[in-house]
C-alpha cells in the first residue's frame, strides 16, 4: 500500500514538473524576454544589464532551476495590466467560478448518473434511446451555442431570466444549466457503457442464474464495478472545476477564472496565464491522485502493480 501511494504521488509530481517545464519552454520559445520588455532601440548596455538582472545571461538549465525555484516559492509574477500579483488576481476569481461549476457538477452527477444507469438497465427501451440521443447532443452541441440558445429563449424571448452578469442568484441559472447539461450527457453515456460492460460479465450472469434477485445483483455487483470507470470521468470533472467554465463564463459575462483567462490571453498577460495554467494543472493532478487512491479502495487488485 505504501508503495502504491508512493508511485501515485511520484506520478502526480512528475505531471506538475512537466507542466512547469512546458510553461518554461513555451515562455523561452516565444521570444527573448529582453527584447519583449525593452524597446528594440534600447542601448546595448541597458539590454545587457537587463539580462544580468533577470539571469538571462546564465546557462539555460540554471535559468530553468531558478524558474522552478521561484514557482515553488509562489512567485508567479505580476500582471502586466495592473501590476498586482498574478496569484492574487487569480485567487480572487475562484469563488465566482466555483459558484457556477459546483452546482453544475451536482447537476451533471444528479442527472447523468441515474440516466446512464437507467438506460443500461433498460437497454434499447425508449428511455434508453432518449438518454443516448441526449448524450450525443450533450457533446455535439458546443456550450456557447447551447448557452446562446438558452439566452435567446429565456432571456430575449420570454424575458424570465437575465442574460448575463452577476446581480442575483437568478443570473446563475442559465450558466449552470449550460454547463451541467453537456456534462450530464457525457456522464450518462459513459455510465451506460460502463454498466453494460459489467452487466455482460460472466459473474453477473452466474449470479443471476443462481437465483440471486436481479435488484440485488445490480446493487451488489454491477453498480460497484461500474463505479470504477465512472469515478475517472467524475474525477476529471472535479479537476476542471476551476477551468471548466472558460467558454460559458464568456458567454454569460461571468467574472470568474475562465473569463480572466480569456482576457489575459487576448492581452498576452503572460504572468496571469501562467498562473492559471499551473493552478489548473495542480487541481487536475490532485483530482487524479484522489481518483487513483479511490481506485485502490474500490478495487484492491489494482494496488499491486504499476499500471
Amino acid at each position: 500500500m505504501i508503495r502504491f501511494l508512493g508511485l501515485r504521488l511520484a506520478r502526480a509530481m512528475l505531471t506538475i514538473v512537466l507542466v512547469v517545464t512546458f510553461a518554461f519552454v513555451v515562455l523561452r520559445m516565444s521570444g527573448d524576454p529582453a527584447m519583449t520588455i525593452m524597446s528594440p532601440e534600447a542601448p546595448a548596455e541597458a539590454i545587457a544589464a537587463f539580462r544580468k538582472a533577470w539571469g538571462l545571461d546564465q546557462p539555460i538549465w540554471l535559468q530553468y532551476l531558478h524558474y522552478f525555484g521561484a514557482i515553488l516559492q509562489g512567485e508567479l509574477g505580476q500582471s502586466m495590466r495592473d501590476g498586482r500579483p498574478a496569484l492574487v488576481l487569480v485567487v480572487e476569481r475562484i469563488p465566482a467560478t466555483l459558484l457556477l461549476t459546483v452546482p453544475a457538477l451536482l447537476l451533471k452527477i444528479g442527472l447523468g448518473l441515474p440516466a446512464g444507469i437507467y438506460a443500461a438497465l433498460h437497454r434499447n427501451s425508449l428511455a434508453d434511446r432518449m438518454v443516448m440521443a441526449g448524450a450525443v447532443a450533450g457533446f455535439t452541441v458546443p456550450s456557447f451555442v447551447l448557452g446562446l440558445l438558452l439566452v435567446l429563449l429565456f432571456a430575449v424571448q420570454l424575458g424570465w431570466l437575465p442574460s448575463g452578469g452577476q446581480e442575483s442568484w437568478r443570473s446563475m441559472i442559465l450558466p449552470v444549466i449550460t454547463l451541467g447539461l453537456g456534462g450530464a450527457g457525457i456522464l450518462a453515456r459513459f455510465t451506460r457503457s460502463a454498466m453494460l460492460e459489467v452487466l455482460g460479465q460472466p459473474y453477473i450472469r452466474t449470479a443471476s442464474a443462481k437465483g440471486v434477485p436481479w435488484a440485488l445483483v445490480v446493487r451488489g455487483h454491477a453498480l460497484p464495478n461500474a463505479a470504477i470507470p465512472t469515478v475517472t470521468i467524475i474525477g476529471f470533472m472535479i479537476g476542471s472545476l476551476i477551468a471548466g467554465a472558460v467558454v460559458v463564463e464568456s458567454v454569460f459575462s461571468w467574472p470568474g477564472v475562465g473569463r480572466l483567462l480569456v482576457v489575459a490571453v487576448a492581452n498576452r498577460d503572460l504572468a496571469v496565464v501562467q498562473c492559471i495554467l499551473l493552478l489548473v494543472a495542480t487541481t487536475m493532478v490532485s483530482a487524479n491522485l484522489i481518483v487513483d487512491l479511490l481506485y485502490g479502495v474500490l478495487d484492491p487488485r489494482l494496488r499491486g502493480g504499476g499500471h
Binding site: M29, L270, Q274, L277
Partner: peptide
C-alpha cells in the same frame, strides 16, 4: 483548451 490558450497567449 487551457493548454491551447496558454500557447496562444505566449505566441
Amino acid at each position: 483548451l487551457i493548454v491551447a490558450l496558454s500557447v496562444l497567449a505566449f505566441f
